[in-house]
Nucleic acid binder design. Structure first.
Lengths: 191, 191
DNA sequence: GTCTATAAATTGATAGAC
DNA sequence: GTCTATCAATTTATAGAC
Protein backbone atom coordinates (compact mmCIF):
# COMPACT_ATOMS: atom_id res chain seq x y z
CA UNK A 1 0.00 0.00 0.00
CA UNK A 2 2.26 2.81 -1.25
CA UNK A 3 0.90 6.30 -1.50
CA UNK A 4 2.12 8.65 -4.18
CA UNK A 5 2.72 12.31 -3.57
CA UNK A 6 -0.24 13.02 -5.76
CA UNK A 7 -2.50 10.86 -3.60
CA UNK A 8 -1.27 12.46 -0.41
CA UNK A 9 -2.00 15.83 -1.95
CA UNK A 10 -5.57 14.88 -2.90
CA UNK A 11 -6.22 13.51 0.56
CA UNK A 12 -4.79 16.63 2.20
CA UNK A 13 -6.95 18.77 -0.07
CA UNK A 14 -10.10 16.84 0.89
CA UNK A 15 -9.37 17.37 4.58
CA UNK A 16 -8.62 21.06 4.20
CA UNK A 17 -11.48 21.94 1.84
CA UNK A 18 -14.01 19.98 3.90
CA UNK A 19 -12.85 21.62 7.12
CA UNK A 20 -12.52 25.25 6.03
CA UNK A 21 -14.13 25.49 2.61
CA UNK A 22 -12.38 26.27 -0.66
CA UNK A 23 -11.83 30.00 -0.21
CA UNK A 24 -10.53 29.78 3.36
CA UNK A 25 -8.08 27.01 2.52
CA UNK A 26 -4.57 28.12 1.60
CA UNK A 27 -2.24 26.20 -0.66
CA UNK A 28 0.23 26.33 2.22
CA UNK A 29 -2.26 24.51 4.40
CA UNK A 30 -2.75 21.76 1.83
CA UNK A 31 0.99 21.44 1.26
CA UNK A 32 1.78 21.18 4.94
CA UNK A 33 -0.93 18.55 5.52
CA UNK A 34 0.64 16.55 2.69
CA UNK A 35 4.11 17.03 4.15
CA UNK A 36 5.36 19.15 1.28
CA UNK A 37 6.61 22.64 0.65
CA UNK A 38 4.13 25.16 -0.79
CA UNK A 39 5.92 25.02 -4.13
CA UNK A 40 5.57 21.25 -4.48
CA UNK A 41 1.82 21.59 -4.93
CA UNK A 42 2.33 23.24 -8.28
CA UNK A 43 4.34 20.34 -9.65
CA UNK A 44 1.14 18.29 -9.56
CA UNK A 45 -1.55 20.90 -10.19
CA UNK A 46 -1.72 24.12 -12.16
CA UNK A 47 -3.71 25.99 -9.55
CA UNK A 48 -5.67 25.67 -6.35
CA UNK A 49 -8.87 25.46 -8.37
CA UNK A 50 -7.58 22.62 -10.53
CA UNK A 51 -6.73 20.62 -7.42
CA UNK A 52 -10.19 21.34 -6.13
CA UNK A 53 -11.75 20.30 -9.43
CA UNK A 54 -10.02 16.90 -9.20
CA UNK A 55 -11.54 16.34 -5.76
CA UNK A 56 -14.98 17.48 -6.86
CA UNK A 57 -14.89 15.44 -10.07
CA UNK A 58 -13.89 12.22 -8.36
CA UNK A 59 -16.59 12.73 -5.72
CA UNK A 60 -19.27 13.29 -8.34
CA UNK A 61 -18.12 10.30 -10.40
CA UNK A 62 -18.26 8.08 -7.35
CA UNK A 63 -21.75 9.28 -6.50
CA UNK A 64 -23.11 8.83 -10.00
CA UNK A 65 -21.66 5.31 -10.25
CA UNK A 66 -23.17 4.51 -6.89
CA UNK A 67 -26.71 5.53 -7.75
CA UNK A 68 -26.57 3.91 -11.19
CA UNK A 69 -25.48 0.58 -9.71
CA UNK A 70 -28.07 0.84 -7.00
CA UNK A 71 -30.92 1.51 -9.40
CA UNK A 72 -29.88 -1.42 -11.59
CA UNK A 73 -30.05 -3.92 -8.75
CA UNK A 74 -33.78 -4.69 -8.91
CA UNK A 75 -36.96 -3.80 -10.78
CA UNK A 76 -39.36 -3.88 -7.87
CA UNK A 77 -40.15 -0.16 -7.35
CA UNK A 78 -40.32 -0.02 -3.54
CA UNK A 79 -37.14 -1.98 -2.89
CA UNK A 80 -35.42 -0.16 -5.71
CA UNK A 81 -36.18 3.23 -4.19
CA UNK A 82 -35.36 1.99 -0.70
CA UNK A 83 -31.98 0.72 -1.85
CA UNK A 84 -31.24 3.85 -3.84
CA UNK A 85 -31.88 6.25 -0.97
CA UNK A 86 -30.16 3.88 1.47
CA UNK A 87 -27.00 3.85 -0.67
CA UNK A 88 -27.07 7.58 -1.36
CA UNK A 89 -27.51 8.55 2.28
CA UNK A 90 -25.03 5.92 3.44
CA UNK A 91 -22.37 7.34 1.15
CA UNK A 92 -23.00 10.87 2.42
CA UNK A 93 -22.92 9.74 6.04
CA UNK A 94 -19.70 7.79 5.56
CA UNK A 95 -18.03 10.37 3.35
CA UNK A 96 -19.34 13.58 4.83
CA UNK A 97 -16.03 15.38 4.22
CA UNK A 98 -15.91 14.67 0.49
CA UNK A 99 -19.67 15.14 0.41
CA UNK A 100 -19.33 18.63 1.82
CA UNK A 101 -16.99 19.57 -1.00
CA UNK A 102 -19.15 17.92 -3.64
CA UNK A 103 -22.35 19.56 -2.47
CA UNK A 104 -21.36 22.96 -1.15
CA UNK A 105 -18.44 24.24 -3.20
CA UNK A 106 -19.94 24.15 -6.68
CA UNK A 107 -19.56 27.91 -7.05
CA UNK A 108 -15.81 27.79 -6.48
CA UNK A 109 -15.37 26.03 -9.83
CA UNK A 110 -14.43 27.87 -13.02
CA UNK A 111 -17.31 28.26 -15.51
CA UNK A 112 -15.94 25.42 -17.67
CA UNK A 113 -15.61 23.07 -14.72
CA UNK A 114 -19.02 24.11 -13.49
CA UNK A 115 -20.55 22.97 -16.75
CA UNK A 116 -18.82 19.60 -16.51
CA UNK A 117 -19.77 19.01 -12.87
CA UNK A 118 -23.30 20.27 -13.52
CA UNK A 119 -23.73 17.46 -16.00
CA UNK A 120 -22.92 14.86 -13.34
CA UNK A 121 -25.47 16.44 -11.04
CA UNK A 122 -28.19 16.30 -13.67
CA UNK A 123 -27.44 12.64 -14.32
CA UNK A 124 -27.61 11.77 -10.62
CA UNK A 125 -30.93 13.54 -10.29
CA UNK A 126 -32.17 11.83 -13.43
CA UNK A 127 -31.61 8.36 -11.96
CA UNK A 128 -33.84 9.22 -9.01
CA UNK A 129 -36.52 10.76 -11.21
CA UNK A 130 -36.55 7.68 -13.43
CA UNK A 131 -36.93 5.36 -10.46
CA UNK A 132 -39.89 7.42 -9.32
CA UNK A 133 -41.41 7.53 -12.81
CA UNK A 134 -41.15 3.75 -13.17
CA UNK A 135 -42.87 3.26 -9.84
CA UNK A 136 -45.65 5.63 -10.85
CA UNK A 137 -46.04 3.85 -14.20
CA UNK A 138 -46.68 0.48 -12.58
CA UNK A 139 -48.98 1.99 -9.96
CA UNK A 140 -46.70 1.50 -6.96
CA UNK A 141 -46.01 5.18 -6.28
CA UNK A 142 -48.18 8.24 -5.99
CA UNK A 143 -46.13 11.30 -6.97
CA UNK A 144 -47.43 14.72 -7.98
CA UNK A 145 -44.19 16.52 -8.80
CA UNK A 146 -41.54 14.10 -10.09
CA UNK A 147 -38.65 16.56 -10.21
CA UNK A 148 -39.47 18.25 -6.92
CA UNK A 149 -39.91 14.94 -5.12
CA UNK A 150 -36.67 13.55 -6.57
CA UNK A 151 -34.83 16.59 -5.26
CA UNK A 152 -36.48 16.25 -1.84
CA UNK A 153 -35.38 12.62 -1.61
CA UNK A 154 -31.79 13.58 -2.41
CA UNK A 155 -31.99 16.44 0.10
CA UNK A 156 -32.15 13.93 2.93
CA UNK A 157 -28.71 12.56 2.12
CA UNK A 158 -27.22 15.84 0.97
CA UNK A 159 -28.13 17.66 4.16
CA UNK A 160 -26.32 15.02 6.22
CA UNK A 161 -22.99 16.50 5.23
CA UNK A 162 -23.93 19.80 6.89
CA UNK A 163 -24.05 18.37 10.40
CA UNK A 164 -23.40 14.61 10.48
CA UNK A 165 -20.10 13.04 11.44
CA UNK A 166 -19.62 9.27 11.66
CA UNK A 167 -17.14 9.80 14.50
CA UNK A 168 -19.67 11.58 16.73
CA UNK A 169 -21.26 8.21 17.37
CA UNK A 170 -24.86 9.12 18.20
CA UNK A 171 -26.03 7.31 15.07
CA UNK A 172 -24.19 4.98 12.74
CA UNK A 173 -24.15 5.72 8.99
CA UNK A 174 -26.23 2.57 8.50
CA UNK A 175 -28.87 3.79 10.95
CA UNK A 176 -29.11 7.15 9.18
CA UNK A 177 -29.38 5.42 5.80
CA UNK A 178 -32.09 3.05 7.05
CA UNK A 179 -34.08 5.95 8.45
CA UNK A 180 -33.86 7.94 5.22
CA UNK A 181 -34.72 4.93 3.07
CA UNK A 182 -37.79 4.26 5.17
CA UNK A 183 -38.89 7.91 5.09
CA UNK A 184 -38.37 8.00 1.32
CA UNK A 185 -40.64 5.03 0.76
CA UNK A 186 -43.35 6.59 2.91
CA UNK A 187 -43.05 9.84 0.94
CA UNK A 188 -44.11 8.23 -2.34
CA UNK A 189 -45.72 4.85 -1.62
CA UNK A 190 -49.30 4.54 -2.78
CA UNK A 191 -52.07 3.82 -0.31
CA UNK B 1 -38.83 54.73 3.50
CA UNK B 2 -35.38 56.00 4.37
CA UNK B 3 -32.50 53.58 4.54
CA UNK B 4 -29.69 54.18 6.97
CA UNK B 5 -26.08 53.49 6.09
CA UNK B 6 -26.16 50.64 8.54
CA UNK B 7 -29.11 49.05 6.75
CA UNK B 8 -27.47 49.45 3.35
CA UNK B 9 -24.39 47.78 4.78
CA UNK B 10 -26.34 44.80 6.12
CA UNK B 11 -28.14 44.36 2.83
CA UNK B 12 -24.88 44.56 0.88
CA UNK B 13 -23.35 42.01 3.22
CA UNK B 14 -26.24 39.60 2.70
CA UNK B 15 -25.84 39.85 -1.06
CA UNK B 16 -22.09 39.37 -0.99
CA UNK B 17 -21.96 36.58 1.60
CA UNK B 18 -24.79 34.66 -0.10
CA UNK B 19 -23.16 34.99 -3.49
CA UNK B 20 -19.54 34.21 -2.66
CA UNK B 21 -19.52 32.86 0.87
CA UNK B 22 -17.94 34.51 3.90
CA UNK B 23 -14.29 33.76 3.16
CA UNK B 24 -14.39 34.80 -0.49
CA UNK B 25 -16.14 38.08 0.26
CA UNK B 26 -13.90 41.09 0.75
CA UNK B 27 -14.76 44.06 2.91
CA UNK B 28 -14.09 46.18 -0.17
CA UNK B 29 -16.81 44.24 -2.02
CA UNK B 30 -19.34 44.86 0.74
CA UNK B 31 -18.41 48.53 0.95
CA UNK B 32 -18.75 49.10 -2.77
CA UNK B 33 -22.12 47.35 -2.91
CA UNK B 34 -23.28 49.67 -0.14
CA UNK B 35 -21.86 52.68 -1.97
CA UNK B 36 -19.21 53.39 0.63
CA UNK B 37 -15.47 53.49 0.94
CA UNK B 38 -13.72 50.45 2.46
CA UNK B 39 -13.00 52.42 5.62
CA UNK B 40 -16.65 53.32 6.22
CA UNK B 41 -17.48 49.70 7.01
CA UNK B 42 -15.47 49.90 10.21
CA UNK B 43 -17.45 52.84 11.54
CA UNK B 44 -20.44 50.48 11.88
CA UNK B 45 -18.76 47.15 12.61
CA UNK B 46 -15.60 46.09 14.42
CA UNK B 47 -14.69 43.41 11.92
CA UNK B 48 -15.89 41.43 8.94
CA UNK B 49 -16.94 38.64 11.28
CA UNK B 50 -19.02 40.93 13.47
CA UNK B 51 -20.91 42.16 10.40
CA UNK B 52 -21.43 38.56 9.41
CA UNK B 53 -22.63 37.67 12.90
CA UNK B 54 -25.32 40.37 12.70
CA UNK B 55 -26.63 38.86 9.48
CA UNK B 56 -26.55 35.33 10.85
CA UNK B 57 -28.16 36.31 14.15
CA UNK B 58 -31.03 38.17 12.55
CA UNK B 59 -31.65 35.26 10.17
CA UNK B 60 -31.72 32.73 12.99
CA UNK B 61 -33.99 34.95 15.12
CA UNK B 62 -36.42 35.31 12.25
CA UNK B 63 -36.48 31.55 11.67
CA UNK B 64 -37.01 30.66 15.32
CA UNK B 65 -39.83 33.18 15.64
CA UNK B 66 -41.39 31.78 12.49
CA UNK B 67 -41.48 28.15 13.62
CA UNK B 68 -42.65 29.06 17.12
CA UNK B 69 -45.56 31.07 15.78
CA UNK B 70 -46.39 28.34 13.30
CA UNK B 71 -46.43 25.59 15.91
CA UNK B 72 -48.67 27.68 18.19
CA UNK B 73 -51.36 28.12 15.55
CA UNK B 74 -53.24 24.84 16.09
CA UNK B 75 -53.25 21.70 18.21
CA UNK B 76 -54.34 19.24 15.54
CA UNK B 77 -51.12 17.28 14.84
CA UNK B 78 -51.39 16.81 11.08
CA UNK B 79 -52.31 20.39 10.27
CA UNK B 80 -49.78 21.63 12.79
CA UNK B 81 -46.95 19.72 11.11
CA UNK B 82 -48.17 20.66 7.66
CA UNK B 83 -48.21 24.34 8.58
CA UNK B 84 -44.82 24.15 10.26
CA UNK B 85 -43.03 22.59 7.31
CA UNK B 86 -44.93 24.82 4.91
CA UNK B 87 -43.77 27.94 6.72
CA UNK B 88 -40.20 26.74 7.17
CA UNK B 89 -39.76 25.75 3.53
CA UNK B 90 -41.57 28.87 2.32
CA UNK B 91 -39.16 31.08 4.26
CA UNK B 92 -36.15 29.26 2.82
CA UNK B 93 -37.54 29.45 -0.71
CA UNK B 94 -38.30 33.16 -0.41
CA UNK B 95 -35.13 34.05 1.47
CA UNK B 96 -32.65 31.67 -0.09
CA UNK B 97 -29.83 34.25 0.09
CA UNK B 98 -30.14 34.85 3.82
CA UNK B 99 -30.88 31.16 4.24
CA UNK B 100 -27.60 30.23 2.58
CA UNK B 101 -25.71 32.33 5.09
CA UNK B 102 -27.71 31.03 8.02
CA UNK B 103 -27.30 27.39 7.06
CA UNK B 104 -23.89 27.14 5.43
CA UNK B 105 -21.58 29.62 7.12
CA UNK B 106 -21.83 28.49 10.73
CA UNK B 107 -18.12 27.66 10.84
CA UNK B 108 -17.11 31.21 9.92
CA UNK B 109 -18.33 32.43 13.31
CA UNK B 110 -16.01 32.95 16.28
CA UNK B 111 -16.33 30.29 19.02
CA UNK B 112 -18.40 32.66 21.20
CA UNK B 113 -20.78 33.52 18.38
CA UNK B 114 -20.98 29.85 17.43
CA UNK B 115 -22.25 29.02 20.89
CA UNK B 116 -24.89 31.72 20.68
CA UNK B 117 -26.09 30.74 17.20
CA UNK B 118 -25.95 27.05 18.09
CA UNK B 119 -28.51 27.73 20.77
CA UNK B 120 -30.96 29.14 18.21
CA UNK B 121 -30.47 26.06 16.07
CA UNK B 122 -31.23 23.72 18.94
CA UNK B 123 -34.38 25.66 19.76
CA UNK B 124 -35.60 25.50 16.16
CA UNK B 125 -35.01 21.76 16.02
CA UNK B 126 -36.73 21.37 19.37
CA UNK B 127 -39.94 22.91 18.07
CA UNK B 128 -40.11 20.33 15.30
CA UNK B 129 -39.31 17.45 17.62
CA UNK B 130 -42.02 18.57 20.05
CA UNK B 131 -44.61 18.76 17.28
CA UNK B 132 -43.70 15.20 16.28
CA UNK B 133 -43.74 13.97 19.88
CA UNK B 134 -47.20 15.45 20.47
CA UNK B 135 -48.51 13.75 17.33
CA UNK B 136 -47.07 10.43 18.47
CA UNK B 137 -48.55 10.87 21.94
CA UNK B 138 -52.10 11.23 20.60
CA UNK B 139 -51.64 8.40 18.12
CA UNK B 140 -51.65 10.52 14.95
CA UNK B 141 -48.03 9.94 13.98
CA UNK B 142 -45.85 6.89 13.70
CA UNK B 143 -42.21 7.90 14.28
CA UNK B 144 -39.29 5.64 15.17
CA UNK B 145 -36.50 8.17 15.58
CA UNK B 146 -37.82 11.54 16.75
CA UNK B 147 -34.57 13.48 16.45
CA UNK B 148 -33.55 11.95 13.15
CA UNK B 149 -36.97 12.50 11.62
CA UNK B 150 -37.13 16.09 12.86
CA UNK B 151 -33.80 16.77 11.18
CA UNK B 152 -34.95 15.08 7.97
CA UNK B 153 -38.05 17.28 7.87
CA UNK B 154 -35.94 20.41 8.27
CA UNK B 155 -33.53 19.13 5.60
CA UNK B 156 -36.21 19.60 2.97
CA UNK B 157 -36.34 23.35 3.54
CA UNK B 158 -32.66 23.76 4.33
CA UNK B 159 -31.53 22.11 1.12
CA UNK B 160 -33.63 24.53 -0.92
CA UNK B 161 -31.09 27.27 -0.34
CA UNK B 162 -28.44 25.20 -2.11
CA UNK B 163 -30.14 25.34 -5.49
CA UNK B 164 -33.50 27.15 -5.40
CA UNK B 165 -34.02 30.70 -6.55
CA UNK B 166 -37.46 32.34 -6.58
CA UNK B 167 -36.41 34.35 -9.65
CA UNK B 168 -35.76 31.22 -11.74
CA UNK B 169 -39.51 30.78 -12.00
CA UNK B 170 -39.87 27.04 -12.57
CA UNK B 171 -41.63 26.70 -9.22
CA UNK B 172 -43.07 29.35 -6.92
CA UNK B 173 -42.00 29.38 -3.26
CA UNK B 174 -45.58 28.49 -2.37
CA UNK B 175 -45.50 25.43 -4.63
CA UNK B 176 -42.24 24.23 -3.07
CA UNK B 177 -43.65 24.76 0.42
CA UNK B 178 -46.86 22.90 -0.41
CA UNK B 179 -44.89 19.97 -1.80
CA UNK B 180 -42.63 19.76 1.25
CA UNK B 181 -45.54 20.06 3.66
CA UNK B 182 -47.35 17.23 1.91
CA UNK B 183 -44.23 15.02 1.86
CA UNK B 184 -43.63 15.75 5.54
CA UNK B 185 -47.10 14.59 6.51
CA UNK B 186 -46.69 11.38 4.51
CA UNK B 187 -43.34 10.75 6.24
CA UNK B 188 -44.89 10.50 9.70
CA UNK B 189 -48.66 10.02 9.35
CA UNK B 190 -49.98 6.81 10.84
CA UNK B 191 -51.73 4.27 8.64
C1' DG C 1 10.30 16.36 -7.81
C1' DT C 2 11.70 18.59 -4.00
C1' DC C 3 13.45 22.53 -1.81
C1' DT C 4 14.37 27.91 -0.41
C1' DA C 5 13.41 32.38 -1.64
C1' DT C 6 10.63 35.72 -3.44
C1' DA C 7 7.66 38.18 -6.63
C1' DA C 8 3.12 40.40 -7.30
C1' DA C 9 -1.26 41.07 -5.84
C1' DT C 10 -4.82 41.26 -2.46
C1' DT C 11 -6.52 41.42 2.06
C1' DG C 12 -8.49 43.17 6.82
C1' DA C 13 -7.99 46.95 9.23
C1' DT C 14 -6.24 51.77 10.74
C1' DA C 15 -4.63 56.89 10.61
C1' DG C 16 -5.87 61.28 10.09
C1' DA C 17 -8.05 65.06 7.35
C1' DC C 18 -12.61 67.10 6.61
C1' DG D 1 -19.61 59.59 9.50
C1' DT D 2 -17.29 59.86 5.34
C1' DC D 3 -13.28 60.13 2.72
C1' DT D 4 -8.08 59.19 0.81
C1' DA D 5 -4.02 56.97 1.77
C1' DT D 6 -1.64 53.38 3.60
C1' DC D 7 0.12 49.70 6.71
C1' DA D 8 1.14 45.00 7.74
C1' DA D 9 0.12 40.54 6.85
C1' DT D 10 -1.13 37.00 3.87
C1' DT D 11 -1.94 34.87 -0.50
C1' DT D 12 -1.26 32.42 -5.09
C1' DA D 13 2.09 31.31 -7.86
C1' DT D 14 6.94 31.32 -9.89
C1' DA D 15 12.29 31.20 -10.27
C1' DG D 16 16.13 28.71 -9.88
C1' DA D 17 19.30 25.61 -7.17
C1' DC D 18 19.87 20.66 -6.11
Amino acid sequence: MTTTARERLMSAAVDAFAEKGFAATTTRDIASRAGMSPAAVYVHHDSKESLFFQVSLSGHRETLELVEKSAARTDEPVERLRGLIYDFSLWHARNSRVGRIVQYEFNALTPEHRTEIGDYRRRIERVVRDVLADGVAVGAFDVDDLGGTARALLSLGVDLVRWYSPEAGSRTPEAMATLHASLAVRMVHKG
